[in-house]
């Protein structure tokens, strides 16, 4: 479920909705969850320079992903993602996510605070995603109820 601010209502997100645009932006719900890369792809180191590692991720057999491959540029020092490029099954880049800001909330633990999603099929289309405030700690289950999503949750 997710809060739709324009409607002021909580809407149930179908599983297929993971690929839908988040609030009409270039970001999909799958981009926000970030779990697809771990679950659906097999990584292979392709290229590297002094500071980065380039991983090419190919979908596992029958993985529910429409992408042909995904490349992931990782910073060597902190092992943090810098850029993710999604390719269609014909080898054309379709979308890229450039991550430019991190916050270290615990030693060696990072939170992405600034990223930009670029739609490579539509020149100039991009969505910048910034986290201005954040708090680390367990979130009570009650915050995930429909009423909490609509009214807000303080803890």
């Amino acid at each position: 479920m997710g809060l739709q601010p324009r409607l002021g209502r909580v809407l149930r997100l179908p599983p297929s909705g993971r690929n839908s645009r988040f609030l009409g932006s270039d970001v999909s719900y799958a981009d926000l969850s970030g779990r697809d890369l771990e679950d659906y792809y097999q990584p292979q180191a392709r290229d590297a320079d002094e500071n980065t590692i380039l991983l090419e991720l190919t979908p596992k057999p029958r993985a529910p992903t429409p992408w042909g491959k995904v490349t992931l540029t990782v910073e060597k020092k902190r092992v943090l993602p810098q850029k993710i490029v999604y390719y269609d099954q014909r080898g054309n880049p379709v979308k890229e996510v450039v991550i430019s800001g991190f916050a270290e909330y615990a030693p060696g633990r990072y939170l992405i605070t600034a990223s930009e999603v670029r739609d490579l099929l539509n020149q100039g289309w991009r969505t910048r995603f910034e986290v201005s405030d954040w708090k680390v700690g367990p979130v009570p289950d009650g915050c995930f109820s429909q009423s909490a999503l609509e009214r807000g949750c303080r803890y």
Partner: peptide, 15 residues
């Protein structure tokens, strides 16, 4: 090419 098929039925959401 691969096409993703998703549904939500008796088994819950699956793709």
């Amino acid at each position: 090419e691969r096409l993703v098929v998703s549904t939500a039925a008796l088994a819950g959401p699956r793709s």
